[in-house]
């Protein structure tokens, strides 16, 4: 009786508080149910999708959103959008180099000491579109566009939340009687129902290199997947390591159980 009851209680405890997520008193709509390639214990990133998603980030999001935890070289790491097994050192990856060279970063000239702009290298981090938070707020009606490196982990609902916000906000009308302030937009997925970001995507806003038709839904899926990678770049390594660890632990625990049975076999207990 003790065993069963306490086991149940323990699981209920972990279940209720660990996994239940945010407090129930929330007026936000649940994010849409989206199927992702990275779901589940064997989930992996779809590299072509990440490349398309990067293009959406580059051409749409990056004009307002920084991504300050990510270096260009990270784009060429295993599991990343531009990983190429020919370049184990991602700094050498020509695609990564080309992407970096497209950006300008601040530096100090070693001879004159002047602050200069130079083309970025693979080792540089993505530069912020604004000089500082005050400039970012000033350009966006008082709201600072959040950094995107960890955005998926920083929002309940993760990638599905991002997808819901960028795919659907533009086509949804606020409920009757709700007043959305000027310079703000209706967003039912957010607590409070109002977001400062205008609906960012329109069909055909980017031209995909792989000729995938660029519908709003496609762009939203791709950029959400890219942001999932940005927030969790080690996911593939983590899940692959996890599989090996689980197999080892199950075999090891099985052996321990066999030893336990053997050692206790002629001892009453």
């Amino acid at each position: 009786m003790f065993n069963k009851t306490v086991c149940l209680a323990a699981f209920a405890f972990i279940g209720a508080f660990g996994l239940a997520g945010p407090a129930a008193a929330d007026d936000a709509m649940a994010p849409m149910d989206v199927h992702w390639s990275f779901e589940g214990p064997f989930g992996h990133y779809d590299q072509e999708q990440l490349q398309r998603g990067y293009k959406v980030y580059r051409e749409v999001c990056s004009s307002c959103h920084a991504m300050n935890q990510i270096a260009f070289r990270n784009l060429g790491d295993p599991g990343a959008p531009f990983y190429d097994p020919k370049y184990p050192n991602s700094n050498d990856n020509p695609k990564v180099k080309a992407i970096a060279a497209d950006y300008k970063v601040s530096d100090v000239d070693g001879d004159s000491g002047d602050v200069i702009k130079r083309p970025a290298t693979s080792a540089d981090y993505f530069p912020s579109p604004y000089a500082n938070n005050a400039a970012a707020a000033n350009a966006n009606g008082g709201a600072v566009p959040p950094d995107m490196s960890l955005l998926v982990k920083a929002r309940e609902g993760g990638a599905a939340y991002i997808y819901s916000v960028v795919a659907k906000d533009g086509v949804m009308t606020p409920p009757h009687g709700m007043i959305v302030p000027a310079g703000r937009y209706y967003d039912p997925y957010k607590s409070g129902g109002v977001i400062a970001m205008p609906p960012p995507l329109v069909a055909g806003k980017v031209t995909y290199d792989d000729k995938t038709p660029a519908s709003v839904d496609q762009e939203a899926r791709d950029v959400s997947a890219f942001l999932q990678w940005a927030a969790d770049p080690k996911m593939e390594e983590r899940k692959q390591t996890g599989l090996a660890v689980m197999i080892f632990l199950i075999v090891f625990t099985g052996l321990l159980y066999a030893s336990y049975r053997k050692i206790w076999s002629d001892v009453g207990h």
């Binding site: 996890g242 689980m246 199950i250 090891f252 625990t253 321990l256 159980y257 030893s259 336990y260 206790w264």
Partner: peptide
């Protein structure tokens, strides 16, 4: 050995 087996089970949940 009994504790070891229990730690093994615990490590599986942990992992």
């Amino acid at each position: 050995v009994k504790d070891g087996f229990a730690i093994g089970l615990f490590m599986i949940m942990f992992a």
